[in-house]
Amino acid sequence: MSVRTDSVNEGAEPESSRLSREDVAHVASLALLELTDAELDEFTGQLDAVLEHAKDIDALDVGDVEPTYHPYPVTNVFRDDVVEQLDVHDAALAMAPEAEDGQFRVPPALGEEP
């Protein structure tokens, strides 16, 4: 399966419009992911190909079209305002990687490399 590209400019886009290795490294760090150099190379090519493909919608004029965030808009869904006693504390902690005194335990927030 492929999409025919009739553009005569194929491959002639300015470099700046393509996804760079630095872009991917930045996005990975925003997403709290660590990539090796080899992964960075591989992902850059793959993600760039997907974004390039997605440029087929650039030509569409959708300025007057409202965005759809949800296919079946149901708004203001309320439950009955009734107090419920939920005994979920132990269940919530049961699958924690580390717990102590009824709380989730994590490494120090400000710990630094030794």
Partner: peptide, 28 residues
């Protein structure tokens, strides 16, 4: 060594390549 490093290391080890690709595409 700290919470942020733990989170990053956990996500890096826990997710496979396709999940990482989609997370990065979406973050972008």
């Amino acid at each position: 060594v700290n919470t942020a490093a733990m989170m990053k290391a956990s996500r890096t080890a826990g997710f496979g390549p396709e999940v990482k690709r989609r997370i990065m595409l979406g973050t972008y």
